[in-house]
Design a protein around this nucleic acid. Structure first.
Lengths: 136, 136
DNA sequence: CATATATTTCGTCATATGACGAAATAACGA
DNA sequence: TCGTTATTTCGTCATATGACGAAATATATG
């Protein structure tokens, strides 16, 4: 059991991965959206997401070439839900987290074709087609 | 704020440090007691304790040559209390933690002079003076 | 003061980790 | 099939980390 907690513990021990968890609180996101917000190499983001998934904190869904991640509801790791609950209750006013969220809002305004072209998930509203590229 | 959570997150990301936190749940302990239970070099234990203290999870008290640590009540780190609460609620049935506790009970039977000679803190019962060395 | 003891700090080592670019894989469309 | 695209895996690098022994520090005693 301790090794299961170790997975969760190590997963949230990195600030980038905490940022990812906070980004995913409101809704599921595509890898390319997370990558754009964090401004890291896709390989790095993929590795972080993989670690979070192995710790039972994230769930993955594929839609064509696109891969979406969301916070885990039920989890094979018994310690993941409690830790996710804790993280939901904190950092609400943090500068870094707030900046990430503002950036995400802008990224979600980008024409899908310019960022992550593909089918819009049915449970999300259709994005604006304004052809402007925001500051990133 | 994220850097404060990072401290707590990294601190509990190591299983040895989680074992220390679980050992300290019932009561304050001396470094030499923790060292004996974990069976690690004193230098290693000291470093772990230092990290936990810097994260605001532990509080230190000196009594002569001896240094005692206990879980922090109030903490300069806003995230420490919630994390300690979470850790108190888990791993109660874990094999490693249970073995540590059994070992600690034996260590507390050792004549003080053989393990950590010195003044018995006034809020602890006087230990048995049976001159036997238990299996460690 | 010298000696003893408990703990902490320092230095070293083996291993882990977060970053990246390159390569591999998965999926799609012509 | 080939070309394109999104993501993942692999390999590399710089740095961090957990372990240890040695040295330094803090404390007590004669």
């Amino acid at each position: 059991m301790l090794d299961q907690f170790e997975r969760v513990g190590k997963a949230i021990g990195d600030p980038t991965r905490v940022r990812i968890l906070k980004l995913l609180e409101p809704e599921e996101l595509c890898v390319c959206q997370i990558t754009a917000v964090l401004d890291l190499a896709p390989a790095t983001v993929s590795k972080h997401l993989s670690l979070l998934r192995e710790a039972g904190l994230l769930v993955q869904r594929k839609a064509g070439r696109w891969v979406y991640y969301r916070l885990a509801g039920h989890s094979p790791n018994p310690y993941a839900p409690a830790m996710l609950t804790l993280i939901r209750s904190i950092l609400g006013e943090d500068d870094v987290i707030a900046a990430d969220r503002r950036k995400l809002n802008k990224i979600k305004e980008i024409p899908v074709e310019a960022l992550c072209a593909g089918t819009i998930p049915t449970d999300e509203p259709r994005l604006s087609l304004t052809p402007r590229i925001p500051e990133l």
